[in-house]
């Protein structure tokens, strides 16, 4: 009934200023990407789908429960600088 697949997208803390380590997971597989804050997420979505053999139309990417679109970048998605959430665990950006 629902189109299948819903990889969750999570962003571990940023190690350096410009690059973020981003984990994309569907709860079975995990793929890590290192991208800039301004990089469009479409790159990462395409790479993830390629690697998992999935069709882009059949998957949904979410960050903290909100849909993320291919045209988004970490800058547009994340309103929570890591400094504001010291105790939130490793998956905040």
């Amino acid at each position: 009934m629902s189109d299948n697949g819903s990889p969750m997208q999570q962003k571990p803390e940023d190690g350096q200023q410009e690059h973020l380590n981003i984990k994309v997971t569907d709860n079975n597989n995990e793929v890590f990407f290192k991208i800039k804050r301004t990089t469009q997420l479409s790159k990462l979505m395409n790479a993830f789908c390629d690697r998992q053999g999935k069709n882009m139309q059949s998957v949904r990417f979410l960050f903290d429960g909100q849909r993320v679109q291919p045209g988004d970048s970490p800058d547009t998605v994340c309103a929570w600088p890591s400094t504001l959430l010291p105790s939130a665990g490793s998956n905040q950006c």
Binding site: M8, N27, R60, L62, D64, G65, L85, A88
Partner: peptide, 24 residues
């Protein structure tokens, strides 16, 4: 209202799914 992906997320990662509440 949360997205319907709540269920799959909750099955795999309850504490991560609880964090969906934070930005809201």
């Amino acid at each position: 209202a949360f997205k319907s992906q709540w269920y799959t997320s909750m099955k795999g990662n309850p504490s991560g799914t609880a964090r969906w509440a934070r930005p809201m």
